[in-house]
Design a protein around this nucleic acid. Structure first.
Lengths: 207, 207
DNA sequence: CTTCGATTTGACCACCCGGTAAAATTCACG
DNA sequence: CGTGAATTTTACCGGGTGGTCAAATCGAAG
């Protein structure tokens, strides 16, 4: 069946293979653009065999989304309220940029989902994601209010980190076309450090 | 036929109605998720009648893309090499944010297209868009090198403007969920001015 | 009011896609 | 090996989708 804990090694292997193939296909074609045939083919299985492991296309997509959440939220989770504020935020940004670099499919899958109005991810966004963001926004607000970083809008600061980093995964084609095919990440990392650094700077003393 | 210049007023009116409906549907469901039936229904026409004005789904999507390009590139086009650098860049950012606010469907249509690897927009990106970006990047580079703004990477600065502003249209659902339903744009505008201002600032003199 | 091209419609089709049923095969274990 | 459960395959649907076609209707110019 499609029970959560895989009972046999065959099930463990095949579920993993399918999830990998589905990530690939969902990320590159979107939910409606992806076909079970193509996912099955990518996974090296027949379509009915795929449906033996996942009840439906919906269920498969949902399973991926669940698997992804931990990976996706890890960088923000790791932001330490006890750490040095500027370093914590820069580190968060770097971790998110690494995510774009090393997990672009996950980023695009998410982007696809949100773009369509989050028909399947809405519960996760309203629950887990929102509460984590609110929690960390409070941390950032405290840092800002005690003058350890410049004055920032915590929520919009987080949005900015998302936007700036995920852009390199989601709009990869555009970025690479404009950059002429060279790997954009080294320059992107230096640039984003520069941007975040400037934003977190304490205000210049009035002359 | 599907000739470019509409011959009759009926043609002009119906083509416009169809393009409007198609923008709505393509933006909210993606290319493959959109159906001709739904577009026709939204436009108040029958499907064969729609296909009387546009040869195919592809052709319709392409027509929208072409129509969109001017609107889409206008803010960057308006960036004036003779203007005051800081003001020009801030103005560009504001115009792009207005685009997200007032034309979110256009933004999402583009995002969808790029996410899927730009199967239909590639020529436009490689041509018109790239050359415009390169041209304006050179302008920004000159401003930076003559010390009229802080040291910036022109291409990545432009990417950042895109990322930061389009995020509010493309990830609207997520943003509004986290912000609790209040209009995010006023705060976003203030925040982005703050961010861009900080980035363009000339470096603090070494003590 | 006629006429002819422009527009609209209804009927239709071939294909694709998600999903099912049941038989066939493979696997683990005694 | 034998056996029952787990896995895989073959054959098949029903609905939806992009697109066609010929007939019907409309509209403007004479």
């Amino acid at each position: 069946m499609t029970d959560n804990p895989p009972r046999t090694r065959i099930q463990a292997r095949n579920r993993a293979t399918i999830l990998e193939a589905a990530l690939e296909v969902f990320a590159s074609r979107g939910f409606r653009g992806a076909t079970l045939d193509r996912i099955a083919q990518t996974a090296g299985l027949s379509k009915p065999n795929l449906l033996y492991y996942f009840r439906s296309k919906e269920a498969l997509h949902l399973a991926i989304l669940e698997d992804l959440m931990d990976l996706w939220l890890a960088p923000l989770r790791e932001m330490d309220p006890e750490g040095e504020p500027r370093e914590e935020i820069l580190r968060y940004m770097r971790r998110k940029l690494d995510m774009s670099r090393h997990h672009p499919r996950e980023s695009r899958l998410f982007a696809n989902e949100i773009l369509q109005g989050a028909p399947r991810a809405r519960p996760v966004i309203e629950g887990e994601l929102k509460s984590l963001v609110d929690e960390k926004a409070a941390v950032i607000a405290a840092w800002s209010e005690t003058g350890r970083i410049g004055p920032v809008d915590p929520h919009h600061l987080i949005f900015s980190v998302w936007a700036l980093t995920q852009h390199y995964a989601d709009f990869d084609v555009q970025v690479r076309t404009i950059m002429g095919g060279t790997d954009p990440y080294p320059a992107a990392e230096a640039w984003l450090e520069r941007v975040m650094g400037a934003v977190l700077e304490l205000p210049r003393a009035a002359p």
